[in-house]
Nucleic acid binder design. Structure first.
Length: 835
RNA sequence: GCGAGAGUGGCGAAACUGGAAUACGCUUACGGCUUAGGACCGUAUGCCUUCGGGCGUGGGGGUUCGACUCCCCCCUCUCGCACCA
């Protein structure tokens, strides 16, 4: 084995300081002391496997923020816990023939020691674990609160089913028709399930996005799109020869006169009734059956061939009383709108394709403005290549002819409202949150089914409904709770008769939708949290985590927060003030994962270079919000820099002891410039941290200062006090990034208490200004020379100086100066032409 | 298709409200120190060059004394959503 000479004894100092921080409880916070509070929260991890450097980025960023804020005098709360329920633990346990609980706690142990190795500081006294009864008791309590407010309800519905995970999924967990976890195509099942009525909050979840000023734009956009608000009109179409009316939603009422047929979704509830006396009934129903059985993934592909069948029935277009045919087709979704669509082939591409295929009429009712004059003549027989989806002028639309289509949207909607044809409405894409899971490793839903009393919530005093930990999941993943008589058989709290316990457990996203509240009062037994404290400490000042939670976790947490706010349990209605989403760490062009075999384990790196090196490189490799490729060379560079800092301190300590002659009073030159650089660096690093998460540039600024110190130290005339100030600043500025080496060097320099206890340095304006400086001289925008002039020199003197510059004069020989552009203290540009 | 973000040396990347493009780091080369070094210290490192200079921030145009930065058009990549009526 090759022997690597250590640049500094990181292996001795790192454990030393980690122990010290714990011993001195640097990260323990007194919750009653909320003055200057700062809640710094990193998304709590799912205890699945050993952490790799990609995970590390998350925690390191959080640690830097926490340490920096502490040095700025904030009372920083930085807690950690475990999102410990869930399918992967159960599946892993099945595979390893162990229990998910054991599996989970083993992982927690490993991960906890890894976090400690990274030197990431947390207030471990607030640790929470979502699979423990003292936590899930309150998850169940939240369920009961929602149940009381009728925001938790059970209904039979077509739900997303993952055949591989053997459970239902929320809409948010279906990614392009496949299961979020295992990529298995999701099927539909008609099941009785528990939902949270998040749709009641759609409008607030949408409009309050405006309150989230410091959230990444893309996360806000993703949430907006997910909520998917559309303004439109529900129009009533009477069915010919029936007393039924079919309502359909449209955002484009202006196209109503172009509606030449109507389409129903295969799942439409009136379909079967309408088919009763139709000739081709059997053929039609067979088609409907086929469409219903097609998997969601297949049906949701935009390029799937549109298929439909005429139902034999007609409806009346209420605006022009035209009789139009009623179809069923595979491209209409039951989940959105009303499951019935008025088809306007001239102005909707999907309808257009469908109409072409089945030779249905295509009536143009809006003509694009540029073509209006000529186009009008052709509208009867026009042969379109595609639908005209844009705005234009109304034609063939009765009394609305000649109006701009935008205006017609309002006029027609008004007309419909007045005449009872339709009414304005709002549609959201957001659906209710399906929260029941047919799996074992989750928080039991606190509900009982009594033959006499029906669905009965477990009384609050009986919480928690304990999840029996002695059960084994059977290999198919079926919920073993159903065979646990002790669990299932219960007494009805109302009538004391026999009752059956709900065996479904809650989606783990319910667990994580409120954990940030529990940290405040993690030990509390009789309440989920202390309102007084929670109101003081929340919203979270800085939330840090992966962008993969942009919709799921962040939307659910916002929802639960709003529900708790409405019930008066808390006094704020948004949980996270600022959100930072870090980029992934890539290796060999792919996201790190065990299956790809490109995982960089921190253990070896820490053994070889120490934690501080791993931290420094992670922060220096690029802007933290961007994905970044891991480079082993880069790690070495970080290690080299820390060695350089270490040796710098050694040299300075030695030189401080040696007698110094003459330099004491030395002014100007290197002393001034090092002093200036020191204060410039304070400014730069502080700005980088205050303005955002610019760790990479903050670190490079400190590197520059260190480089300058190496130059300065070679010079005899460097003053010790200036050198000493500089090195202290280097250490303090570096301490949030590389806390171990910073502590050690701080101590070496005679620091009495921890660097963490130091105040963040302030730069002094007076040292920033230079007496003289070099400014560029451009001729016609091209850099030609530079002149050294006193700072703040007036324009005339500057011109004179520039004109006396030999290089500049050479260039100007054959030119006539036309204009001077002088930006004070920045640049000179001489505009000139040939003589 | 819709939405968001991005395109700068051999590589990761800097550049604040338009004002010296490539800071900092990696890589590479050379020199020093060394028994030796893949350690350390130092110098150089965008491209072309007839050594005057010329060209350079995805491409093309524009505004400006001056554009990585602002405006218009186009190309490429990443991410998210996607038959949402």
């Amino acid at each position: 084995m090759q022997k690597v000479k250590k640049a500094y004894p990181f292996d001795e100092i790192e454990p030393k300081w980690q122990k010290c921080w714990i011993k001195n409880r640097f990260f323990k916070v007194d919750i009653k002391d909320f003055r200057n509070k700062y809640y710094c929260l990193v998304m709590f991890p799912y205890p699945s496997a050993k952490l790799h450097v990609g995970h590390g980025r998350n925690y390191i960023i959080g640690d830097v923020v926490a340490r920096y804020k502490m040095m700025r005098g904030f009372n920083v709360l930085t807690p950690m816990g475990w999102d410990a329920f869930g399918l992967p633990a159960e599946n892993a346990a099945i595979k390893d023939k162990t229990h998910p609980k054991k599996h989970t706690f083993n992982n927690i142990k490993t991960m906890k020691s890894q976090l400690k190795e990274w030197g990431v500081g947390y207030d471990w006294s607030r640790e929470i674990t979502s699979c423990q009864p003292d936590y899930y008791k309150w998850t169940q309590w939240i369920f009961l609160k929602l149940f009381e407010k009728k925001l938790a309800y059970r209904k039979k519905a077509f739900v997303n089913w993952c055949p591989s995970c053997d459970t239902t999924l929320a809409n948010e967990q279906v990614i392009q028709g496949t299961c979020e976890r295992c990529n298995t195509p999701v099927t539909q099942k008609d099941l009785e399930q528990w939902f949270f009525k998040i749709t009641d909050y759609a409008e607030r979840l949408l409009s309050d996005i405006n309150k989230l000023r410091d959230w990444p734009e893309r996360v806000k956009t993703m949430q907006k799109n997910w909520i998917g608000k559309s303004l439109g009109v529900n129009i009533r179409f009477p069915v010919v020869g029936s007393d039924k009316v079919l309502t359909c939603f449209t955002t484009r009422v202006d196209t109503i006169f172009g509606a030449t047929y109507m389409v129903l979704a295969a799942e439409h509830p009136l379909l079967e009734e309408l088919m009763k006396n139709v000739k081709n009934k059997n053929k039609i129903l067979k088609f409907v059956e086929k469409v219903r059985n097609e998997s969601k993934i297949k049906r949701s592909q935009a390029d799937i061939e549109k298929k439909g069948i005429f139902t034999g029935r007609y409806v009346i277009n209420p605006m022009n009383n035209k009789k139009i045919p009623l179809w069923v087709a595979n491209y209409v979704l039951m989940e959105y709108g009303t499951g019935a669509v008025m088809a306007v082939p001239a102005h909707d591409q999907r309808d257009f394709e469908f109409a072409k295929k089945y030779r249905l009429p295509i009536d143009v009712v809006i003509v694009p403005v540029p073509e209006f004059e000529t186009f009008q003549l052709y509208t009867e027989t026009i042969f379109l290549a595609h639908a005209l989806e844009g705005d234009g002028i109304m034609v063939n639309s009765g009394q609305f002819n000649g109006l701009p289509s935008r205006k017609a949207v309002k006029r027609i909607a008004d007309f419909m409202q007045k005449n009872g044809i339709g009414h304005r409405t709002i549609q959201y894409k957001l659906r209710d949150w399906l929260i029941s899971r047919q799996r074992y490793w989750g928080a039991p839903i606190p509900i009982l089914y009594c033959n006499r009393c029906g669905t009965v919530p477990v009384p609050e005093k009986d919480l928690p409904v304990i999840l029996p930990t002695g059960l084994k999941s059977n290999p198919r993943g079926e919920n073993p709770l159903k065979d646990s008589k002790n669990f299932v058989n219960a007494t009805c709290p109302k009538c004391k008769g026999n009752a059956r316990r709900e065996i479904d457990t809650m989606d783990t996203f319910v667990d994580s939708s409120w954990y940030f509240l529990r940290y405040i009062s993690s030990q509390l037994n009789d309440k989920p949290f202390e309102k007084e404290d929670v109101d003081k400490w929340l919203p979270v000042d800085q939330y840090i985590g992966g962008v993969e939670h942009a919709i799921l976790h962040l939307l659910y947490s916002r929802f639960i927060t709003k529900v708790l706010f409405d019930s008066g349990f808390i006094s704020f209605d948004e949980p996270f003030k600022n959100l930072f989403t870090q980029g992934m760490i890539i290796k060999n062009g792919a996201k790190m994962s065990k299956s790809k075999g490109n995982v960089v384990s921190p253990d070896e790196l820490i053994k070889k270079y120490g934690t501080d090196t791993v931290r420094l490189y992670t922060l220096f490799m690029g802007p933290p919000e961007k994905d970044a490729e891991w480079s082993d060379r880069g790690v070495e560079g970080a290690y080299r820099f820390l060695g350089r800092v270490w040796r710098l301190v050694e040299r300075i300590t030695v030189s401080l002891l040696a007698p110094q002659s003459g330099a004491k009073q030395s002014q100007g030159g290197i002393n001034d410039s090092l002093k200036r650089k020191t204060h410039q660096t304070i400014k730069k690093v502080t700005d980088d941290l205050e303005k955002g998460f610019h760790f990479n540039t903050a670190i490079s600024a400190v590197m520059e200062l260190v480089n300058e110190m190496y130059i300065a130290i070679e010079k005899k005339e460097i003053r010790r006090d200036i050198l000493k100030e500089a090195i202290k600043i280097v250490i303090v500025l570096l301490s949030p990034f590389v806390p171990h080496i910073a502590e050690e060097l701080w101590e070496k320099l005679g620091g009495k208490s921890s660097v963490l206890k130091q105040n963040w340095p302030e730069f002094e304006q007076q040292f920033l200004a230079e007496e003289t400086h070099t400014i560029p001289v451009q001729i016609n925008g091209r850099l030609r020379s530079k002149v050294n002039v006193p700072f703040g020199i007036d324009k005339e003197a500057l011109k004179e100086k520039v004109l006396s510059d030999e290089k500049t004069r050479n260039y100007l020989k054959n030119l006539a100066v036309e204009r001077w552009i002088i930006i004070p203290n920045k640049l000179v540009n001489i505009v000139s032409a040939n003589k």
